[in-house]
Simulated scan of single mutants.
Amino acid sequence: MTVRTGDGLSLAVQVRGEGPTVVAVHGYPDDHHVWDGVADALVGSGHRVVTYDVRGAGASGVPGDRAGYDLELLAADLRAVCDAVSPAEPVHLLAHDWGAIQTWHAVTGDALTGRVASFTSISGPCLDHVARFLGRRARRDLPAVARQMLHSWYTVFFRIPVLPELLIRSGLLGRIVARSERIAPPDPADAVHGLELYRRNLPRRLGNPQIRRTDLPVQILCPRRDAYVGTDMAVSAAPFAPDLRVRHLPGGHWVVRHRPDEVAGPVAELVAETTGDTVAPGLERARTLGSALVATGGRALGR
Rank of each mutant, 00 (worst) to 15 (best):
V294P: 02
E165W: 13
I183N: 01
R136F: 09
R259V: 10
V23N: 04
V177C: 03
T275S: 11
G44T: 00
R169T: 10
V267Y: 08
P186G: 03
Y28A: 11
N208F: 14
A59N: 13
L195I: 12
L71R: 05
A24D: 10
V192D: 12
A24P: 12
V177T: 09
Y198C: 14
L93Q: 13
P29S: 13
L289W: 00
V229L: 08
V263I: 15
E181L: 08
H253M: 06
P188G: 10
P209S: 09
A184C: 01
V246M: 01
P209K: 06
F119P: 10
T21E: 03
P266R: 07
E181V: 00
R204I: 15
G124I: 03
A57K: 08
C126Y: 03
L244F: 07
L127S: 11
L74S: 04
H129V: 00
G44P: 00
G230R: 07
H105F: 12
F133I: 02
R259E: 14
T5A: 06
S170Y: 03
N208I: 06
V85D: 06
T108G: 14
A12P: 07
L9R: 04
A146V: 09
D128W: 03
V34F: 01
P185H: 02
G114I: 14
A138Y: 06
T5L: 03
L42T: 04
A237N: 09
T5S: 10
R169I: 07
V25A: 12
S60E: 08
R137K: 10
L127F: 14
E72Q: 03
G61A: 02
A24E: 09
V294D: 02
